[in-house]
């Protein structure tokens, strides 16, 4: 126990001050801007439900990294929840497989509105290397309406964070564009 306390005492706060590890200047700008506004509005709240719609778990590893002290998702007022009922953001990864298409749709319907959907990874955008596979139904946008797509295989945590922040920004300003990237289809029931 004493060893643990010593460790806690000597370890500094390791969280990165702002997102700056990714070289994409545009995303960094979005992130910084949203982060500032987030502070101004005395904190925000976003509860995320993660749906693995058939991913190779590469994206999950990166998403898992969001929770660690280095990226510390919680400081933006976001955290992962156990039920779509508690969520207002769905984080969907992977090409949507036949078995996961229906659950994904049900998860979307089970989430109370207003809600946003962020598709994470190349597979979620356009099925990636799995495109055309017999078990694949299509990209996430073929099943549920997508607000923001974060590309990359897998996208680094900072990029995912930037994507979520962008979506958050959109929710607060509904008049802005619905999607920055990727196709959007509206066949999902509202």
């Amino acid at each position: 126990m004493l060893a643990l306390w010593n460790k806690i005492w000597t370890t500094p706060v390791v969280t990165e001050p702002v997102v700056r590890t990714y070289d994409d200047a545009q995303i960094e700008a979005i992130a910084r801007q949203v982060d500032e506004r987030a502070r101004r509005l005395f904190g925000r709240s976003l509860h995320i439900r993660e749906v693995d719609a058939g991913s190779c778990n590469g994206c999950e590893l990166e998403i898992g990294a969001l929770n660690n002290p280095y990226y510390d998702l919680e400081r933006f007022g976001m955290h992962f929840v156990a039920s779509p009922r508690h969520a207002d953001c769905l984080l969907v990864t992977g090409p949507v497989t036949r078995n996961m298409a229906d659950p994904l749709k049900r998860t979307y319907d089970a989430t109370p509105g207003p809600k946003i959907v962020v598709a994470v990874g190349d597979c979620a955008r356009d099925c990636g290397i799995f495109a055309g596979g017999y078990g694949v139904v299509g990209p996430v946008s073929a099943i549920v309406p997508v607000d923001v797509v974060v590309g990359g295989c897998p996208p680094p945590p900072s990029m995912i964070l930037a994507g979520i922040l962008a979506a958050l920004d959109m929710r607060d300003n509904p008049q802005s564009v619905r999607s920055t990237d990727g196709p959007v289809s509206d066949d999902g029931a509202q």
């Binding site: 039920s83 659950p103 994904l104 049900r106 998860t107 319907d109 089970a110």
Partner: peptide
């Protein structure tokens, strides 16, 4: 409020 099926992890 909106009625929807019980959450069962997306089970059919």
């Amino acid at each position: 409020w909106r009625a929807y099926e019980t959450w069962g992890c997306g089970r059919a």
